[in-house]
Design a protein around this nucleic acid. Sequence first.
DNA 1: AATGAATGAGAGTTCATTCAT
DNA 2: GATGAATGAACTCTCATTCAT
Lengths: 198, 198, 198, 198
Amino acid sequence: MSPQPANRTARSRDEILRAAIDLCAERGYAAVTMEAVAARSKVGKPTVYRWWPSKGALFLDALMDRLGERFLLYPDTGDIDTDLRTWLRTLTEVFADERHGQIISGVIGSAQLDTGLARMIQKQVHTALAAVNRARLVKAQEAGQLGAGDPALYDDMLVAPLWYRMLVTGEPITSEYADTIVSILTHQFSLPDPAADG
Amino acid sequence: MSPQPANRTARSRDEILRAAIDLCAERGYAAVTMEAVAARSKVGKPTVYRWWPSKGALFLDALMDRLGERFLLYPDTGDIDTDLRTWLRTLTEVFADERHGQIISGVIGSAQLDTGLARMIQKQVHTALAAVNRARLVKAQEAGQLGAGDPALYDDMLVAPLWYRMLVTGEPITSEYADTIVSILTHQFSLPDPAADG
Amino acid sequence: MSPQPANRTARSRDEILRAAIDLCAERGYAAVTMEAVAARSKVGKPTVYRWWPSKGALFLDALMDRLGERFLLYPDTGDIDTDLRTWLRTLTEVFADERHGQIISGVIGSAQLDTGLARMIQKQVHTALAAVNRARLVKAQEAGQLGAGDPALYDDMLVAPLWYRMLVTGEPITSEYADTIVSILTHQFSLPDPAADG
Amino acid sequence: MSPQPANRTARSRDEILRAAIDLCAERGYAAVTMEAVAARSKVGKPTVYRWWPSKGALFLDALMDRLGERFLLYPDTGDIDTDLRTWLRTLTEVFADERHGQIISGVIGSAQLDTGLARMIQKQVHTALAAVNRARLVKAQEAGQLGAGDPALYDDMLVAPLWYRMLVTGEPITSEYADTIVSILTHQFSLPDPAADG
DNA sequence: AATGAATGAGAGTTCATTCAT
DNA sequence: GATGAATGAACTCTCATTCAT
């Protein structure tokens, strides 16, 4: 997503990203070092630094490489309820997947300590994501499937609880949780009565 | 909140926490090191490490020292709408305050890379916070001021958007944003029409 | 030799010295720490420090305790040649004995870095040792068994080579070496011809 | 003498050695720490440790740097008496010089607690020194200027008394002392009569 | 462009030494 | 006196980052 693949260059890039992912699976995000990534991928450390200024940036790229398309292809069956549910479940699965979740929380965690990385996330992730999300929501509003209201707020309320559990409380992120949130948003935001439906 | 203040001990503890806070204000959370904290507070590094296993733990304690009570005194005027608004505004103010916000996001960020710190946050912050929050919500439900529904979900949806902006999108956290979220939750969750009321 | 043995005090003192000697045998002088000595002898660290200001001082005392008398009883059979030989062999044996040699070189080594210890060695060891040595040499001179000459010089030339091997070259200290030195000094200092006697 | 001077490397090396020497002059050998050396020479601690495993090794190198040649150029006027006297006086001057003596005794002292350093001294100092010394002595023997006898013994008896005063008794090391020793060795080892010549 | 080697900030420890009981 | 706990100097090392080739 950032370096242009040239001949040998492209291979290096892939090997570095793979090494990063592999090491993360083996030792956990926190224990991965740039040094280990360089060693595993058989390149010099300066080569790694030429392309990525930090571990966070490297993993952000690795993530985009593997998951980017999955998020940018927003589902559109015509029924907003179904689509939001599908979309949020996708997010849930990724978050809950040990391998990806670890990287995601690690990258977001690193970004709290690294302004540059935070900016990269803005640019590479949020802008793109917000665009597709909001486009779909506006379309649903125009189709009368969703009440009026700032789509950005819908969007926040939809994904924020997942992030909250991921980053703050550590509680499990399940598809039931995702479904409940979608239901609240689409069904006039009325909270389910736990006595009535569990 | 964790080490017992003894004679000389208590003074060290306070000086260390103050040094941490001061350094953070001067250089930003990321640039504070345990070494600098020790130097500034005129104690040896081992003294700092004896009480706090990491920078994150140190700042978590500093935060609890200064803000702990503010959060554990949940407002209770009898009107849930007012109380939630008050409470969330308090949270908003703290998050938006450069000095505190920086520490909060830094600590949560560090916790993504440090299981031990994550656990400390669970214990010292969440358990206490969730208890007061949920108690107030249940009381409101019993008073018929709030629809049925799992109070934990109310709680998540109330604070998650603030955390989301804080940690993920970086968008500003304003009291208008807080108020909107409370309104949605208390007024049957209907989203405001941006065209109608801004 | 320094602390006065009182009731429980004496027992502590002995236990501390024994612990020091034992630990030295187990780990080597360099690896013995005051902390380990305190732990092994089941006393608090301040107790050790009350009596000995440093590891070197402690071992100096331990050494004097075990070896002191051996050196202060200078042999006197009437024949200076025999006596010097006996005396230097005693020294040789002690130096060559792994257990004692290690402590001796360790203490002298420590004294290079510790003026106070150097002074203690002057007082506790040298004054006493030089006195008996020189007394015997003077007596031999008076008996016509030894040429004229400053007895201090005899003394230096007698023991210096042993110390030299011990502290500087690390070459083995054998009784043959000791005997050769004595022979040179007593037989008009004529060096043996290696071609003639080996 | 050990690390290969490269571009930046050489400058660092020199600055580190100079800093060590300077600090030693200011505070005394014992009070010099690797940390202070690093700070004074404006390099990181690991840089110091990369090249020298210990303070003793560092000072050994500093010493060799400044004094090495002085010792390896053994005087050879043809007259062994003169040459030994010259050589031992050189040694005496260095030992008696506050600046060098301190380092020498410190390094030898450290070596008592550090096998690795002891080995370094063997290799870097003794082998070379013994070679030149013995070569000169053998030449003198062949010229009939010196009695038969193991040159190594001559060598030991020549320098041991100086080391003995330096490391053990602390008595002053003067050129008179050196001269007396040479005289004894060269004049058939007959000790001067203090009554006759002072 | 790519890399081996060098660099230094700072983490986290050990242990001599001192305080408070 | 004796001791458990506290303190800090300094060590050693890891790893991000940079230099020189």
